[in-house]
Design a protein around this nucleic acid. Structure first.
Lengths: 336, 336
DNA sequence: CTGTTAGCGCGTTCAG
DNA sequence: CTGAACGCGCTAACAG
């Protein structure tokens, strides 16, 4: 049988309140009683039942994390930050993966509520308004970490996409490139961060009196990329020497597309990405890209949630801007 | 205020027992009473508090998952299976990432016990005996999914490494390769699956009267690989035309090493991997490798845990053998 | 400093 | 079929 607080009390010959006091250090206890309690705890190998504890304190020390796919690098990197910081504050993660099913996400909201989680974090590529609504309705503080969408009114952590995009394009220009095409995702572009990246690209081109040329894909998968192969071909025919891609995946698809057609990266075409996951460093040539601090994004998000849990009332809604870094590697060639 | 069972009872003008009966469908309730209860639940938007429920039923419907790094592809793929199957049976995952710290893992065991999880799954590359001991001591059924270690006495899911390795090497031989080197991880090899892969390699070589040549690294990271670069060089000097690698990562490091030195894959050297994660299909050339069914490994593991939870007593300890597949891609060249 | 008591929200006897 | 009463394991007043 597993020992309960009663067993400890009996063995230490004190009341359960005293036991509770020593384990929580909540009120003064005589050295003698404390000693006996500690001893009994040791002997019985007693560990407080967190469920019972939660019931009375109304603190579950649980954060629900809804992701669209654990298998995605992006998600797992963010998760690292969430998990590790959560642990520092004694919070555990209950992980739910929806695979993009919005109905399932709604069920998750209900589930989280029933499990009495104290907060929630959504890591996703799509936007589920109903889910957010449900969470609010249930008064569960949440943060939305989205790979694409830019949600003004929400608890979000951001990076300055426009500036870093500007810098990246300027770097390409410094390397002698003049015909640079941008490759981004069109879907819902007005509500996504893609917009900022494209804006950064265009500012840089304009600043250097260069003509910009935008190509858009519908999604991030290889199929979407293949749909625009004609545009890629004609861009190259028109003398484009470098592609500024808004996502690492797109850059990778592009490089594969070109390599599979006998071109050389970066000798024939230069390519830059955006993200900086491990793959970009393993691929050859190593991809020049923007390192997005996924870990920190997760870390900041959970910190804010925890803060919000502490003082529900006066919660300052500052948006945190995370620094980014350009990783100059081997997919860009200096030309004359 | 959040509605409790009491509120529902009051509104429906019945006792809490009746409410409990309708939500659990545990005992017959008159249609009239049921209707009223259902209506009250609807109006009050009542959702049973799972914490309270757990306290009395002693069922937390929680499975603890201890991983060494969520950021690892391997781990996240397994996690998919665990999560998805768990969900089917109404179990949720509480995720703990140890980053390989054994002490932390011990704390996790305690934590899981306190959270009253009903089972645990460990997804790791190392082996923590103490952790397993703790779990047993706490009577928490667990499964060990290990990337390397082969643990006979445990709940494990396996694949026939030896056979598939044999087939892979035979495939290389069919492609005309005669001097084939094996590249595996030496650390604890007698207790890891690497042994089976190497055995498969050697059987195949022997079967075709070819001389085998084994190279070992100490770990899976790039640094460990670089430590054996001399051996790689001399293997090639000795005419090796193909490398049978025991892990995708090693194959990737190898290809990068060779490419960075001006060699061409597969024109100059053929390479095969083991794993089959996404990266191997994005890299160029696409890696010929073994597809390990990570998802299924996770799925099977949690199924067994759940089964064990159901009938603690008579639990048949059959080991499940999962099928594997060789993905023939572009990193192997047919030679004469 | 300490023990008694009253719940937390719910499932479950056990009489009716 | 139904309700009263008890208890799961623990914390938090409240007296003393």
């Amino acid at each position: 049988m597993v020992a309960t607080i009663k067993d400890v009390a009996k063995m230490a010959d004190v009341s359960i309140s005293t036991v509770s006091r020593v384990i929580n250090d909540s009120k003064p206890v005589s050295p003698e009683a404390r000693r006996r309690v500690l001893h009994a705890i040791e002997v019985l190998d007693y560990r407080p039942n967190e469920v019972a504890r939660s019931l009375v304190t109304k603190k579950s020390n649980l954060i629900g994390v809804i992701v669209d796919d654990i298998g995605s690098m992006y998600v797992s990197y963010v998760l690292r930050g969430v998990e590790e910081i959560g642990r520092m504050y004694n919070y555990d993660i209950i992980l739910l993966s929806s695979y993009g099913d919005p109905e399932l996400e709604l069920k998750f909201a209900k589930l989280l509520f029933q499990k009495q989680v104290e907060g929630a974090i959504i890591i996703s590529s799509t936007l589920n308004q109903k889910l957010m609504y449900r969470l609010e309705e249930s008064r569960i503080p949440y943060a939305n970490i989205n790979r694409f969408y830019d949600i003004e009114e929400d608890l979000t952590v951001r990076i300055n996409y426009e500036e870093v995009s500007f810098n990246m394009v300027e770097y390409l220009i410094e390397q002698g490139h003049k015909k640079i095409a941008s490759l981004a995702i069109r879907k819902d572009i007005d509500r996504t961060e893609e917009k900022y990246k494209v804006d950064g690209y265009e500012s840089a081109m304009k600043e250097h009196s260069l003509k910009s040329s935008n190509i858009y894909t519908l999604g991030i998968d290889e199929k979407s990329f293949l749909d625009i192969s004609d545009e890629i071909d004609s861009a190259i025919k028109n003398g484009v020497t470098a592609f500024f891609c808004s996502q690492d995946e797109i850059a990778l698809h592009l490089m594969n597309y070109l390599v599979d057609r006998g071109m050389k990266i970066p000798d024939d075409i230069s390519v830059t990405g955006f993200g900086g996951t491990a793959m970009t460093n393993i691929y050859r040539p190593k991809l020049t890209t923007v390192r997005i601090p996924y870990y920190d994004i997760g870390a900041v998000a959970i910190r804010r949630i925890l803060k919000k849990i502490e003082d529900k009332d006066n919660f300052s809604e500052e948006r945190i801007l995370l620094p980014v870094e350009i990783l100059k590697r081997d997919s860009v060639k200096k030309i004359d």
